[in-house]
């Protein structure tokens, strides 16, 4: 997982509430055997409409999704997070996220930022009037800065520590690599191996 300290990027205003995981990534994409390559499935139904915000030329390369309330409801599929990341998003801002989606996103290093709805509205107004406006999400200061907007957000200390250090579950275990190596050194010789010893 990549470290997340501060991210600055252009935004996509998504003026919809209750965007569920089926809309983020439809079920037929779940047959895939990888964690990558979901970018074309992101909001697949809406993207068939040329005027959909994600299809607009001025939104290409944007990395911050500013969404309506109740983002990520529905099934627990982690694919929804992978799809947003595969597409290029680093941050999703909303006034309310569904719990499981939020847990999945933070575990995978996609920062989900909760801001009051009126702040979300101001960010929408800003990026709609100036698509080139950049939003900075500062995890160290727990602050969002853009145009004339400065807003602080809350995040669990442990989760923040993990994101700042780029630690997923595996990374955390690998911090104890010395313990694993020490244990391996004491394993009895009679324990079986699947491969011939080189």
């Amino acid at each position: 997982m990549e470290k997340f300290t501060t991210h600055t990027g252009r935004a996509v205003p998504l003026r919809r509430s209750n965007v569920d995981t089926d809309q983020i990534i439809p079920a037929h994409w779940l047959k895939k055997v990888t964690r990558s390559g979901f970018e074309d499935g992101l909001f697949e139904a809406w993207r068939k409409d040329e005027s959909f915000i994600l299809n607009r030329p001025e939104r290409q390369g944007a990395t911050v999704l500013v969404a309506g309330p109740e983002f990520g409801t529905g099934s627990s599929r982690e694919h929804a997070v992978w799809a947003l990341q595969n597409y290029g998003f680093h941050v999703v801002v909303s006034s309310r996220f569904a719990d499981i989606f939020r847990g999945n996103s933070l575990k995978n290093g996609l920062l989900t930022v909760v801001l009051p709805q009126e702040t979300v509205e101001r960010l929408w107004a800003l990026t709609e009037s100036d698509p080139s406006a950049e939003i900075t999400v500062d995890l160290e200061a727990r602050e969002v800065r853009a145009g004339g907007v400065t807003a602080t957000f809350e995040l669990d200390d442990n989760v923040r520590w993990r994101l700042l250090n780029g630690l997923d579950d595996i990374s955390i275990t690998l911090r104890n690599e010395a313990d694993i190596a020490a244990f391996e050194a004491t394993r009895p010789a009679f324990k079986p191996r699947t491969l011939p010893v080189a």
């Binding site: 579950d169 690998l174 694993i180 391996e184």
Partner: peptide, 8 residues
């Protein structure tokens, strides 16, 4: 994945 990467 965790076991593949760490054997723990």
């Amino acid at each position: 994945e965790h076991v593949l990467a760490t054997q723990t």
